[in-house]
Amino acid sequence: MKVSYFFIAATLLCLSCTSSRNNTSPDAKRKIEELRALIHLSPDQAQKLTSIEASYIDKSKQLRQQGNDKESDLTRLKQKRTSFYKKILSREQFIKFQAIDNELIKQAPVRFNKS
């Protein structure tokens, strides 16, 4: 029993050290924290999505700074991000994410039934 508590404590310590070294965008962290409650993300999913979202934000900023903000480039970048999200999220989570990401949830509140 003591050994299992030790491993849990060691794992939490390692995770906190890794996350403090992670230089993710505050915008990405904020977005994923909002999503976490809305689509019930696991801690593992949240961590993966935060890094994907940070990468997406950084690359889209780079495209805009280079004057390369063509719709096709931004669309390709968003499609790539969406494909990563699809791999990480369950089908139900992904559907909810799409509704939120497309700002449909702001237009009309969506109520999801828990089955």
Score class of each variant (00 low, 15 high):
residue 22 N to P: 08
residue 33 E to Q: 13
residue 5 Y to I: 00
residue 94 F to R: 00
residue 73 D to L: 14
residue 114 K to P: 14
residue 21 R to K: 15
residue 90 S to M: 09
residue 37 A to T: 07
residue 16 S to V: 02
residue 60 S to K: 02
residue 105 I to N: 15
residue 70 K to Y: 04
residue 51 S to C: 10
residue 42 S to N: 06
residue 68 N to C: 15
residue 7 F to G: 01
residue 19 S to R: 02
residue 58 D to G: 11
residue 112 F to P: 05
residue 53 E to N: 08
residue 114 K to A: 11
residue 39 I to E: 00
residue 56 Y to N: 01
residue 58 D to S: 15
residue 4 S to C: 03
residue 71 E to F: 11
residue 43 P to Q: 12
residue 53 E to M: 10
residue 26 P to H: 02
residue 73 D to K: 13
residue 88 I to H: 11
residue 53 E to S: 09
residue 59 K to W: 04
residue 105 I to S: 11
residue 104 L to M: 08
residue 59 K to N: 08
residue 8 I to S: 01
residue 111 R to L: 15
residue 11 T to A: 05
residue 44 D to K: 11
residue 84 F to I: 03
residue 72 S to H: 03
residue 25 S to Q: 08
residue 22 N to Q: 14
residue 26 P to Y: 03
residue 36 R to P: 01
residue 18 T to H: 09
residue 76 R to M: 10
residue 40 H to L: 09
residue 29 K to G: 12
residue 50 T to G: 05
residue 76 R to E: 15
residue 7 F to A: 02
residue 67 G to H: 03
residue 75 T to I: 06
residue 76 R to D: 11
residue 104 L to R: 12
residue 50 T to F: 03
residue 51 S to R: 10
residue 94 F to N: 06
residue 75 T to Y: 08
residue 93 Q to P: 05
residue 98 Q to W: 06
residue 51 S to M: 08
residue 95 I to Q: 03
residue 75 T to S: 12
residue 74 L to D: 01
residue 50 T to N: 07
residue 37 A to S: 12
residue 76 R to Q: 13
residue 70 K to S: 10
residue 49 L to K: 04
residue 3 V to T: 11
residue 87 K to L: 08
residue 10 A to V: 05
residue 91 R to T: 15
residue 96 K to Q: 10
residue 27 D to R: 13
residue 59 K to I: 12
residue 113 N to K: 14
residue 87 K to A: 08
residue 49 L to Q: 01
residue 9 A to R: 06
residue 64 R to P: 01
residue 29 K to A: 15
residue 111 R to N: 14
residue 94 F to A: 00
residue 80 K to P: 07
residue 100 I to A: 00
residue 103 E to T: 12
residue 11 T to E: 02
residue 33 E to F: 13
residue 20 S to G: 00
residue 76 R to I: 08
residue 43 P to H: 07
residue 14 C to Q: 01
residue 3 V to F: 10
residue 1 M to Q: 05
residue 111 R to G: 13
residue 107 Q to M: 10
residue 28 A to P: 04
residue 100 I to N: 07
residue 106 K to F: 12
residue 99 A to T: 11
residue 34 E to N: 11
residue 94 F to M: 06
residue 52 I to A: 03
residue 55 S to W: 15
residue 27 D to L: 04
residue 115 S to H: 13
residue 91 R to E: 13
residue 33 E to W: 04
residue 13 L to D: 02
residue 24 T to I: 10
residue 1 M to C: 05
residue 103 E to V: 12
residue 21 R to Q: 13
residue 16 S to G: 03
